[in-house]
Computed example of a mutant assay.
Amino acid sequence: MGTLIYGPQDVEFDDRLLTHLEIVIVNKFRRRESFLMSWLDDLSVGSGRSSMWMSAEVPVYFKYLGSRVPAINRDWLRLLETEANGPRGLIVLDEDGSPAHAGRAGQQRPDRDAHPVRKIA
């Protein structure tokens, strides 16, 4: 499982899926295009679905668990690009076209500038 880190959000996707998402997201950001990205939440994070507004103004980081770059499926890439350019935004789909699940969806990381509150006795 790789991790998409966008602002204070961490979202885990399979490395192969994340590689394809990276290509689509980077291409949209190169064109300075913002878009909505949506996925199904894994049962481990309570089920449901999540959406996130993606904008080139916010740093994005792709962290992969594996060290090998998977082969790119051009048909899958075109499907994801079509979704990203549609009115509903990028609906994250698995290679077979079914809705993809993500782990830790919506989990926020602490702000890097925030300092923990200390209790003084």
Rank of each mutant, 00 (worst) to 15 (best):
F62W: 04
D41H: 03
V58R: 12
L21I: 06
G48M: 04
G46P: 03
G66C: 06
M37A: 15
E57K: 14
V60S: 12
G66T: 06
R68F: 02
W53K: 08
E33L: 10
N27H: 09
M37H: 02
D14W: 00
V58L: 14
S67E: 04
F29P: 08
F62T: 09
G66R: 10
W39C: 04
R49K: 13
G48Q: 08
P59C: 01
K63F: 05
V24K: 04
K63W: 00
D41N: 11
V69D: 09
S55Y: 02
S50C: 06
H20C: 10
W53Y: 12
I23P: 04
W39M: 02
E22N: 11
S47Q: 12
K28T: 00
L43R: 15
G66S: 11
K28A: 13
F35E: 04
S47E: 09
M52P: 00
F62V: 08
M52H: 07
R32T: 11
D15Y: 00
L65V: 10
R16M: 01
L21V: 03
M37Y: 08
L17S: 05
L17P: 13
L40T: 08
S44Y: 08
S38V: 09
K63N: 10
S51Q: 09
L40Q: 14
F29R: 15
I23K: 09
W39P: 01
E33K: 12
T19K: 07
V24C: 04
D42Q: 03
L40S: 10
S67H: 05
M52W: 00
D42Y: 04
R31H: 13
R31G: 11
S47N: 13
R16D: 12
K28R: 13
G48Y: 08
I23N: 01
V69E: 14
R49V: 11
E22R: 15
V24R: 03
L36C: 14
V26K: 08
Y64L: 07
V24N: 02
G66N: 08
